[in-house]
Structure formats: C-alpha cells, structure tokens
Amino acid sequence: MALSALFLIVFLLQHFIINLMSVISEDAFNSTSHFMGTNGLIQFVMQPILMFGILFHFIMGFILESKNRSARPEKYAMYKGSANSSWMSRNMIWSGLFILGFLAFHLWDFWLPEMNYKYIEGNPADPKRYFGEVQHMFANPIRVIVYCLSFVFLALHLLHGFQSAFQSIGARHPKYTPAIKAFGKWYAILIPAGFIFIAVFHFLNGNH
C-alpha cells in the first residue's frame, strides 16, 4: 500500500508539472506532451507500470478495507472516532473511492480518446494539437466542476496518506518526521490546489 502510494505521489508531481506548463508556455506544453505521447519508453514501459501501480493500490486498498471490517464484526453502539483520529485517516476508503471514480471518468474522457486517436485511427503525430485540446476540454464547466471536486478529495486522501506511507515503511525519526509531516501537508494542499487552478485557468481563458 505504502510503496504504491509513494510511487503514485511521485507520478502526481510529474503530472502536475506537465499540466502546469500549459499555463506557463503553450510551446513548452505542446513539446512536452508530444514527447510524453510519442516516446516509446513512456508509452509502452512507463504507462503500463503506472497502470499496474494504480490497480495495485486500489485492489490492495479494497482487500485492506474488507479485512479490517471483518476484524470487528460487532460494531460499537457509540463510537467517538473524532476524539482520537482525523476524519481523513478514518475515511481513506471513501476519498479513495471518489478518486477511483474520477480516474474512471478521466480514462474514459481523456485517455481512451487519446489511445483511439493515436493507435486505432492511426492519425499522424501533430506536435501542436495538445494545448488547443486542453483549452477545449476545460471549456466545459461540468468537466471543470468534476475536476475541482475530485481534487478536493485527492487533497483529503493525501493529507493522511502522505505521512502514513512513510510510517508504514518504518521511515520515522524525531529529526525527519516533523519535516515529512509538514512537507506532506503542503504537498497535499498545494498539488491538488494547483490542478484546480489549471482547470479554472483554462476555463476562464478558453471562454474569452
């Protein structure tokens, strides 16, 4: 769980940096997207590894949840979880399920048409198409709302998940743990907030 989480945290940063380029420079975004979309190593090695990482994380999450639920067959009549733990830590399954829903939507909405465009229809590579496509996608307010809401859930998931992953692999030390926790908190807020900013930025600029 923790290892796949750390892998996905790194992937998220990479995804964010590329998306952020669409705000900074149209050319940089186009050339990076073209590289990511056509490079054989990324398309045929890294992409399957990513898919495996995502699937592994979700499947392990479901197994963990079902085992943990069966560890307490009789529930408490009165349970005060908020007295000793954060809402985020107790509801990872729900924030995770919401993110899974978003990923399914994202794959259907973005990844499948992209695969279809490149490999099934076999369209010629067009290094200039990406920026326009992003602007077109975020012109739709419903898509922007879905994105924004999903990233709020991602932030909630990361607020617990980031530091929890380090604890699970035993990386805990009085010298470094406060820094890991503080960095994790900023990461969990800034990265999803950045994704929301990018979606809203294109929505506002694309509708001029």
């Binding site: 943990n68 000793n84 733990s85 954060s86 830590s89 604890q167 699970s168 692999i169 035993g170 805990r172």
Partner: peptide
C-alpha cells in the same frame, strides 16, 4: 485488523505508547 496509521491507539493508550514503536516494528 491491519494498521492504517490513524493514530487512535497512541491517543487512547493508558501508558502513552508511541507510534514510533509501530514504525520500528515495520522496519
């Protein structure tokens, strides 16, 4: 069940046993 690092145990422990022990066991 399995540990999901909610930290409830450490808060409720009458002897204040730290989560540091869980990290050590994981290592």
């Amino acid at each position: 069940g399995n540990c999901t690092n909610t930290g409830a145990c450490e808060v409720e422990c009458p002897k204040g046993i730290s989560l540091e022990n869980i990290a050590r066991m994981n290592r």
